[in-house]
Design a protein around this nucleic acid. Structure first.
Lengths: 227, 227
DNA sequence: CCCGAACCGTACCGTACGGTACTTGTTTGG
DNA sequence: CCAAACAAGTACCGTACGGTACGGTTCGGG
């Protein structure tokens, strides 16, 4: 129910950052819960009003519109998953690999989370019409953070002489592809992916992916250490 | 719900053999067109009836239900993309690489096609509720073919001594991840992915992915050719 | 003590959808 | 040539949604 009222000041990162009073946060929390267990079909203003103990009129006063409400849900959820990886400017090889593996683990955990899946389903469903305003918002708010973290990680590895690449974009794309593969789409389609069932499986998948990435991008020739 | 036991005497109940008389095929074609340019929002029985010059009653008689109609659309579309790669039992290294690249090219072309995107969006939107019957159908009808072709390809390469792997599933997953990455989800979200804009870009992406795959799975030690 | 703002609960409106029923051609086979 | 089947077109029904309006209630400030 309540995550203790956020005393966040200076949350300003780049753009947007409306901080949603505590009442609105509660409503958005209820909205996400409703969306997770009902899909966009089960998510309606009347139901949300009942679930959040507020009136529909207030919903429209606060968020203006249904799409405004959805947008608010996206930014609200994105503001919750702000993760910060501990960075070491000059990591050892093992340390770096560990950081990469942690990144992969976090990425898989986030992507397989029910809230992420529900929001992505919603945005994808809406992407057919209205030119994907919500999809853009989702990629902007959700993916950007991940991409930033990964690229910082890659730069660190390159500076430390541990990995080698020319195109950082391409390296990131490869890393992402190796970690996630088609599992994201399969989960979005409702399948249960065995490689992501439980934390142990996720860790195994992360380790496998990072092993391959290392064999592709390692600066040295220690690629014989494959499991 | 029920598949009606009505006058339908064709035994196409279970799997495969979707013959769909020519009239039904036309209707399904119109349905796909409508879905592509309207999304699931713009796709309604009344609109389809008007677009296909048929009556709603006929729609319900032929497909039983809205979900039945959607399922028919999926299987119909799947029956159209039946691709057959020319297989060579004992290809040379270059020939094999070419086959892999062709596969990657075809995969990217199919995934970025508007019909595929629309159907995937539909199934994903429906996956929130109703336990993803349509999603399963889509993976079964659509992905299976691709997976079969790829695995046959991998086996061929292994038999020819060109690539080496223990787990075929894992090798396929890696191949898929290297080719597609997160571009599928991004397209589903409505983004325009530059790496897939036009056939030349797709070919370049395919070649890049297969290059990496080869560096990971080549049987020889020619992996020193890193760029 | 009162006033006004905020807000909950509910009722309401227009619309649009899925699904059904009926009427009117049009085919088809005996 | 006729009757039975089939299908187009339309009208219709129940429902459910997005969005709005209204009465009652709380709460903080003057």
């Amino acid at each position: 129910m309540m995550l203790a009222s956020d005393t966040r000041e200076t949350a300003a990162a780049d753009s947007g950052t409306e901080d949603f009073g505590p009442r609105q946060a509660d409503v958005l929390e209820a909205a996400l819960t409703l969306l997770v267990e009902g899909g966009d079909k089960g998510f309606t203003t009347a139901r949300l009003a009942r679930a959040a103990n507020c009136s529909k009129e207030s919903l429209y006063k606060w968020f203006g519109d249904r799409s405004g409400l959805l947008a608010a849900m996206v930014t609200y959820q994105a503001s919750k998953v702000r993760v910060a990886g501990s960075l070491n400017a000059r990591p050892s090889a093992e340390e770096f690999k560990r950081q990469l593996t942690d990144f992969a683990h976090d990425l898989l955990t986030v992507l397989s989370g029910p809230t992420s899946l529900a929001l992505n389903r919603l945005a994808i469903g809406e992407a057919g019409r209205t030119d994907a305003q919500l999809g853009h918002l989702l990629t902007e708010r959700g993916r950007r953070a991940i991409e930033e973290r990964a690229k910082k990680l890659l730069d660190t590895g390159k500076r430390a002489g541990l990995i080698r690449f020319d195109d950082r974009e391409e390296a990131f794309a490869t890393l992402y592809g190796l970690i996630v593969g088609d599992m994201h789409v399969r989960m979005l389609l409702g399948e249960t992916v065995p490689a992501l069932a439980g934390d142990a499986a996720i860790s195994a998948q992360a380790a496998r992916a990072i092993g391959k990435f290392h064999r592709l991008y390692a600066a040295g020739d220690d690629m014989t250490t494959t499991a």
